[in-house]
Amino acid sequence: MPDRAPQPVERHLPTEEARDLIALVRDIAQREIVPRAAEEEESGHFPREIFSLLSESGLLGLPYDSEYGGGDQPYEVYLQVLEELAAARLTVGLGVSVHSLACHALAGYGTKEQQSHHLPAMLGGGLLGAYCLSEPSSGSDAASLRTKAVRDADTGDWVITGTKAWITHGGIADFYTVLARTGGEGARGITAFLVPGDAAGLSAAAPEKKMGMKGSPTAQLHFDGVRVPDARRIGDEGQGFAIALSALDSGRLGIAACAVGLAQAALDEALAYATGRRQFGRPIADFQGMRFMFADMATRIEAGRALYLAAARLRDAGQPFSRQAAMAKLFCTDAAMSVTTDAVQVLGGYGYTQDFPVERYMREAKVLQIVEGTNQIQRMVIARHLAGPETR
């Protein structure tokens, strides 16, 4: 069995408060998350109690304004918290990222009255959010979504009808940020709404049976005439797609950070195994083939971390970061797939069994290349920034 404890990642953090924050996250991860991760993933248990603990600890609203219960932390710090959580268990790290994504529309585009009314509970009151953009027939082509919101002329309410797909926390979230069509075809006809999780007419299908992340429920949501007051409309009518794209730029950085955390966990496990496993009279970590593999794995992880942090610093400085966010999401998730695959190889036959976590890491890494814009979409985004829109 492995006899080498993983060493904490050396982080260059901007403040003493940030260093204390990372120490808190590591303590929670080692005490509350890691010991239960394998068993709960295998059984498909969603750790709602962990999210309640994170909320109580002030970790669900880190990048948002303290006026509304947030943590006032820059993205440079928030993303490193996500990385630590994802290294402990991807279901938790990704879940925090999705929750932050669900809060983004209201925090960035809501009125002061809306923010004062809703954000404190969303950021630090124990609520859990989800983000509803994708549909069965509109994934990468999100601007073609069909879910409709029609204004009731008598009450002023919006009535939402349609189906959303691939919703992380679908069926268990307390609130949903929902993108629905209120106007004509295309991106300009979409509006954002904040929908309570217990709204009448809202129901969830059975969770998808996934390759990995079995503890994180992903489900279709059905909106059967769900009534939402106009006070829960976020931003202007027709502004929803711009709000969605803004959220996704930040969300992609969250996915990148989670990917680096997962890859780091895989490297730590592989190193622990290789230093304890002996063949031909010495640890297999002594063999050059292994050492070169570890060097490549570590280099991919460090490069990914540097890339997502560079994008985060642009965001924190108020500069454009969309291209860099796409690059970070692309590179970090591809790196996670590569590193976790190599970790399985290091462990040989044991890596293919559930006795060690690397087979789970490999299964989990795959979804990161797909969520919040496939890596093919990221390449399209990057190319458009470099060469302009495609000619038709």
Rank of each mutant, 00 (worst) to 15 (best):
Y273E: 04
R305K: 12
I284T: 14
H222L: 13
T299G: 03
F241H: 10
T275G: 08
A266V: 06
Q220M: 13
Y308G: 00
G215D: 07
P207A: 04
G289M: 12
M293C: 12
G215I: 04
R233C: 03
F292V: 15
I301T: 03
I243Y: 01
A256C: 04
R277N: 06
G240L: 05
D296E: 15
G225H: 01
S250C: 03
A311T: 05
A274S: 15
A256V: 10
A205K: 13
G212P: 02
L262W: 09
M211G: 01
L271H: 12
A206W: 01
D224Q: 10
Q264V: 08
L221M: 08
F280A: 08
S216G: 01
S250Q: 12
A303N: 13
M211D: 02
A263F: 04
A285F: 06
V260K: 00
Q288W: 11
E208K: 14
Q264Y: 09
M293Y: 04
I301Q: 01
T299A: 14
G251F: 11
E237T: 15
R227D: 03
A306D: 13
G251R: 05
G254D: 05
I243F: 02
G281L: 06
A259D: 01
L245S: 03
A306S: 11
G304A: 07
R305V: 01
G238S: 12
P207T: 10
A272W: 03
A247V: 00
T218Q: 15
Q279C: 09
G238L: 05
G240F: 02
G201E: 03
F287Q: 06
A306W: 02
M290E: 09
L248E: 02
H222M: 10
A206E: 15
I301V: 12
V226R: 06
A270L: 11
K214S: 06
Q239P: 00
V226L: 06
M297N: 01
Q264N: 07
G238E: 05
F294Y: 02
